[in-house]
């Protein structure tokens, strides 16, 4: 934001800045309009429900990732944590819904504690630490599942299944969970010292220390939050598919990072928005959804690999716009 208007046409700079701020939302709305005009059933309750049910999980890990990236960090372990927590939820399902849910979230939070403690106490880069827990959590998930493809849920635990497959006030339960999480997250980022200090640390860690902020505690907090939200996503995954999935969640961390960046949060930390992250996550999901509909029309047949290409292109576009509008991170 520094020197934004010093070079070039101010009107152009303003336009670019608006594009950077609202471009993602605009693209999201445009895609919805495009989809509703082109495809029958796009706006149907069924599509809406399945869309939210599936993408709620991405939304949750993106929310955690948003907080981590705001501090200038990264959490690569979330995809593995989703798998781990889904297995934990399945294994605990015979003991009731509360135990299963808390167990899944606690497993995720535990990985977050490990990440956070190593990063803050031993002063090791988040990238390396969470890469290690990415491998470790996946391994533990497979071990707990005794190397099987899945761990079935206790069929008697219908409450747990409802959390993944049920509806509340005609909304899919995962979507409701997502909405609550984002409202709480949004308030936390805007109004809680935790959120503000996370932003401050991303903007300048040394300065934050000099101002007396407890940098270590806040950083530990964001990694625990990220782990816990990934745990919640893992529980939803198990509930949806009726089984713990030790091999699921591959590469989800990258989708979450993409969603956060598309939402306009700087990878270098210091600024960021929870709501833009939500839009970013849903937008990436929407691209996939639209491709499915397009294939359904039978005119063209795009392989699912195209979603990767299109998502990648989108990510690049956003980053280029960010740098053009001067929203570059400070070293």
């Amino acid at each position: 934001m520094l020197n934004t208007n010093l070079t070039g046409d101010p009107r152009r700079a303003r336009l670019l800045s608006l594009l950077g701020q609202y471009g993602v939302l605009a693209a999201f709305i445009l895609l919805i309009i495009f989809g509703s005009l082109r495809y029958e059933g796009f706006l149907s309750a069924y599509n809406f429900s399945t869309f939210l049910r599936y993408n709620a999980m991405f939304g949750l890990i993106s929310l955690g990732m948003c907080f981590v990236i705001i501090t200038g960090g990264i959490d690569l372990s979330v995809g593995s944590v989703v798998a781990l927590s889904s297995v934990v939820a399945a294994l605990l399902s015979p003991y009731g819904v509360v135990v299963a849910v808390l167990g899944a979230v606690a497993a995720g939070a535990l990985v977050g504690v490990i990440n956070g403690l190593i990063i803050t106490r031993l002063n090791i880069q988040p990238f390396i630490v969470t890469l290690a827990t990415l491998l470790g959590a996946r391994g533990v998930a497979l071990l707990l599942a005794r190397n099987q493809g899945g761990v079935g849920l206790d069929p008697g635990n219908t409450a747990l299944t409802w959390l993944g497959q049920g509806d509340l006030l005609r909304l899919p339960v995962p979507g409701v969970i997502l909405l609550i999480a984002f409202v709480v997250g949004g308030v936390a980022l805007r109004y809680s010292p935790f959120g503000r200090h996370a932003l401050a640390i991303g903007g300048g860690e040394d300065a934050s220390k000099l101002m007396g902020l407890n940098v270590g505690r806040v950083l530990l907090g964001v990694y625990v939050l990220s782990g816990a939200l990934a745990g919640l996503a893992g529980m939803i995954l198990a509930a949806q598919l009726g089984a713990g999935q030790p091999t699921e969640g591959l590469g989800w961390e990258l989708s979450a990072i993409a969603a956060v960046v598309v939402g306009g949060t700087l990878l270098t930390g210091g600024t960021g928005s929870v709501w833009s992250t939500l839009v970013g996550a849903l937008l990436l999901g929407l691209i996939f959804n639209i491709l499915n509909f397009e294939n359904g029309k039978g005119i063209i047949s795009l392989s699912p690999y195209w979603q990767s290409v299109i998502r990648g292109g989108f990510l690049l576009l956003v980053v280029v716009i960010q740098s053009r509008t001067g929203r570059r991170g400070r070293a």
Binding site: M1, L2, V187, R190, Y191, S192, P193, R196, H197, L199, A200, G202, G203, G204, D206, A207, S208, L210, M211, G212, L213, G270, T271, R330
Partner: peptide
């Protein structure tokens, strides 16, 4: 200057000592 350029002027003055009610910052 050892402050945080990306945060607002008011935040930079009050970081760590924000006026709060029920744990939430009173902007």
């Amino acid at each position: 200057v050892n402050l945080i350029a990306l945060r607002t002027v008011a935040e930079n003055i009050f970081l760590g000592r924000e006026p709060k009610r029920w744990g939430l910052i009173q902007w």
